[in-house]
């Protein structure tokens, strides 16, 4: 399984941190933070996040992978990205 490079992981981290106000000050945001339980994930943020992942990592996320468990944290998203990249590499 291809690993997600640390710099890509940081980009994703910064994308979320800078797009969800809740992480501005009091709430600490780390790679394992569940964004669904700590803030309101609006439909528009969800779409932007999805577009970001697809453009940044050159993947297409199929409908069945668009589930909370794959998007809940930076760690989960990286797992999904590396799984999808592996599938595409073998396709």
């Amino acid at each position: 399984m291809s690993e997600i490079a640390q710099k890509d992981r940081s980009k994703l981290y910064h994308f979320i941190e800078s797009n969800m106000t809740i992480y501005d000050d009091d709430i600490e945001f780390v790679d394992s933070t569940n964004i669904f339980t700590s803030g309101f994930v609006s439909s528009i943020f969800a779409m932007r996040l999805l577009n970001f992942l697809e453009n940044e990592f050159s993947i297409t996320v199929p409908d069945e992978d668009i589930v909370i468990s794959n998007f809940s944290s930076v760690n989960k998203m990286c797992e999904m990205v590396s799984r999808l990249k592996t599938i595409e590499a073998h396709a």
Binding site: S43, A46, M47, D63, I66, I68
Partner: peptide, 11 residues
């Protein structure tokens, strides 16, 4: 797709 995303990410 946006509607699908809205539903599925609302669990």
């Amino acid at each position: 797709r946006q509607m699908l995303v809205t539903y599925q990410l609302a669990n």
